[in-house]
Design a protein around this nucleic acid. Structure first.
Lengths: 145, 145
DNA sequence: TCTTAAATTTAGGGAACCCCTAAAATATAT
DNA sequence: ATATATTTTAGGGGTTCCCTAAATTTAAGA
């Protein structure tokens, strides 16, 4: 099984942020920007990034940006799938606006099991986009039939 | 505001367990039992209990049991309210059985904001018992009207 | 009661995480 | 080229959770 990855909740936050920047907005992900975004110091960001790099979730070249590896992308997509399925649930049941749904989802996504997410996904007919129109990544274990 | 309480996720686990034993099953809560239940050593339980005691969530007398304080009871009820409202959601939407609903809820309850819980509560007509027939504590901020 | 077994607590550590400041190194823009 | 901005090292610190081994204390049996 190669590297055993276990991402902490904090690291998950970084992954989601980096994925959004890099893969969804094609932005170069900068240390300072991440730091501002998360309310920590740049040195802290560097440290966390180095940890993620050791877990093979991203490539890291000193003083240059980072790039998610295949595993990092997979992990980020898993997290964002959870996040967005939860958004679907909250906007539907609770009539939350996208902003609020996103906030609540951010608190829970990391902790939701994929099987819970898949059950919600099924209940909502396997939606393909979230309330803010972003892609909901599919999971092979989540059967449409 | 007196004591500033901020319970960690782990401490929350202890609180829920102690509350269930003490208030719902009138059992004397023993260190060893808690340890077995949570899969840790007795010494660890003692330590966490001492921390909870410093946060004024329970009374602690060495070698004798513990007893939740008013604040501890309130905190536990808050957590269990979240837990049970989530159970309602999962059994309804996902057709989960009570066991599974409980498992998933345990992972999320601590992280769900009370406002999210109240929104779900409202969507389900302010239920008073959870799927396993236990009381769902009410929240003054959760209006029935 | 006395003694022993069971339960509980201290003492003393350790590991994982996350965060910081100050100082150095590197990159970039003029 | 050089000044400025960005990023990284170096060196710490705090919290939380967990453990083992050695006391204590309680409780139960003889």
């Amino acid at each position: 099984m190669g590297a055993e990855l276990s991402v902490t909740e904090n690291e998950a936050k970084y992954l989601k942020l980096i994925y959004r920047g890099q893969c969804e907005e094609s932005t170069k992900v900068r240390t300072t920007a991440v730091a501002k975004s998360l309310g920590v110091r740049p040195a802290t960001v560097t440290e966390v990034i180095q940890n993620l790099s050791e877990k093979n979730l991203l490539w890291y070249r000193r003083y240059h940006g980072v790039e998610l590896t295949k595993e990092g992308i997979a992990e980020a997509q898993k997290l964002l799938r959870k996040h967005r399925i939860l958004e679907i649930l909250f906007t539907d049941i609770l009539k939350y606006n996208t902003q609020r749904a996103c906030n609540e989802s951010s608190k829970l996504d990391y902790h939701a099991s994929m099987s819970l997410i898949n059950a919600i996904c099924k209940a909502y007919g396997h939606p393909e986009i979230c309330p803010c129109k972003k892609v909901i990544f599919s999971d092979p274990k989540c059967k449409k039939k």
